[in-house]
Design a protein around this nucleic acid. Structure first.
Lengths: 204, 204, 204, 204
DNA sequence: GATGAATGAGATTTCATTCAT
DNA sequence: AATGAATGAAATCTCATTCAT
């Protein structure tokens, strides 16, 4: 319906121009409706932006969830999730821009929306790591702070690769996922076996 | 000199408000000069922002370069580089915000500046990977595209960790670097030894 | 009927918000009908406001007329009229606001409507003064211009007292009327007896 | 200087159109300056209107004060004050419209400004009544509430006559003042002598 | 007879940018 | 070398008003 068109247009404009540089005029024009109509459905620029963030966040988490089957082994779940993630971000670059770039550069109301989505994904990854540790018959005595950092790094690497894959023609979601799996899973495996990299002693 | 003060003020305002929300009035006031003077030295808001990006990019790459001693082993070089990177971003949060958040959310002119800096860092990491392969007495037959993806993932993970470390009080640059080394170096090591993670066969 | 509800709502909104700040949306909502219906019955905001003015003006003059019995002495007629006036304005503050405040603050079309009502009241007062003169067995040789001014002053004082009584809790219509009668009638009586206040000579 | 021109234009537009119907565009154009300049000097439409009210209120009270010499008898002081009042309002019809009509039809911020000015004038009139009572060798046992109503009625009559005199060509300030003096002073005199008008008994 | 849906026009306000000095 | 004073252009948002049904 009409609201759908407006959100589509808004995601496109917000994703390409950024929140502040986007003008309601341009969004209304791209949606093929008049400006007052945009204000009738979504009440202000802020609420319109928030609606975009919510819709795109829901679409992304739904896509990842739909790509993963809970019964499979942890590495397979991670692989499936990553492929779904890269496929979705490749198919919705403007939505991804809204979530990854635009929403984070403006104050609390918006950043909080994205933070919620991110927290969900980080929690998912963290669960997978725990499962992997159990599967490797190793009691997971990695310190919690370390696990949080690892999950953060893994998610950050994925986010970064998504942008890179989008910008590098000829890169498929499958390739991006394979690259990250090789990079991450092996490293995690080493950690599980206790093969840690030891930093050199600090000079006095 | 005068220009220095203006750029300092601009980086602070741009880093905190974002490009569009920053006003030239505010920048001039914070710099303690009049607005026409800002226009005399730096000709427009766009050029001022570009100058900020260039200066902060140069400062960051210089900080990383200064932290690394070329003669040492590859893992030690990566460790030192990461520590320098995390230390610099922690000490210059506004500059890092300009580079990592603000510059990328607006069209080509600015994103390209950051991309150039990023390419430099990715090239540095790529060289280190090559050196590591040589040190491991293994001819590096990893496909070039794979290497690029790995470097991208590593840099992305570092960027993500930098923001995370900045936002998480009590996290030192040393800890962030150690987390990432454990995560990344071990994975790379596995790759060097040919232990790759194999994706499942695609269904027809 | 439907039109009655709309006018009730309009008088309330116009009286409280003023002509320009009142929105047709709000009026339609308060009337419990849809906006196009308002436009069907009353054709535009201007006509709606004019209709409000006419209705409230008619109601006010009718209230005053109904309060006065023509056969009685002039002072009694004035007293009765004033009580009716103060009672009506106290019971219909929004209508009085429309007439006294809102209608006069916008250009000719509206001010003229109120002027007509005012002229009627001034004429009534003028007739009473003439009757009083006759009753006092004095041929009324007060110049016509003077009489007009006196009536104007009396009506203005009444209007002002109405607003004051509305804003001062505990002031009844009876008290307001008594205050004004004391103030005005005595002065008029003096005038009738030829006891005029003589202005000092103008310097050359 | 520039601010003066802007206020002149604003008083003219506000006085003729009313607060809401006046547009900043029109004011700026009449002042011969650009709209942003108006916002530079006076910060918003509200502040501009408030500045107009303050200026016109100060000018009016100053004109009245300058017209009255404190040493003279009370009736002479009232006569002089009224003449100054009618002369000033006749010479500044837009300013008078701003004070008497426009400022009162919009919420507290503006009405309060005018109320302060009015209170000053009412206090002045009240003092004169007290002096007159002393001069008439009568201890002023008029109840306080009665005095307040009388002052209110007198001021209201004056305000109303000002509008009437403005709208009736050929009416001088001197004539308006004489009319009001005859009307008011004689009535007050009667009151002083204890000749009150007695309202008829209320029916049960 | 009645309305949900829609819009053209215009409101206040801000900002990057430039003269005249 | 430096600035106080000024503006064109555009932003968000509101409102009286009208079709299509």
């Amino acid at each position: 319906m009409r609201e759908r068109q407006m959100l589509d247009a808004a995601v496109r404009i917000f994703g390409q121009r950024g929140y502040m540089a986007a003008s309601m005029d341009e969004i209304a024009e791209l949606a093929g409706v008049s400006k007052p109509l945009v204000y009738l459905y979504l009440n202000s620029k802020e609420e319109l932006f928030t609606a975009c963030i919510r819709r795109e966040a829901a679409a992304l988490t739904e896509a990842v969830r739909a790509g993963v089957r809970p019964g499979l082994p942890a590495d397979r779940q991670l692989w499936d999730g990553l492929r779904a993630f890269f496929a979705h971000t490749a198919e919705h670059p403007d939505g991804w821009s809204v979530l990854h770039l635009q929403a984070r550069t403006h104050g609390e109301p918006f950043a909080a929306e994205v933070a919620a989505m991110r927290a969900e994904i980080v929690a998912f990854v963290t669960r997978l790591v725990a499962v992997a540790a159990r599967e490797a018959h190793r009691d997971p005595d990695l310190p919690e702070h370390e696990v949080a950092g690892l999950a953060e790094a893994l998610v950050g690497a994925a986010e970064s690769l998504a942008a890179w894959a989008n910008a590098t023609p000829g890169t498929t979601a499958r390739q991006a996922a394979a690259t990250l799996m090789n990079f991450a899973w092996a490293g995690l495996g080493n950690l599980m076996r206790g093969e840690v990299w030891t930093p050199p002693a600090e000079p006095a």
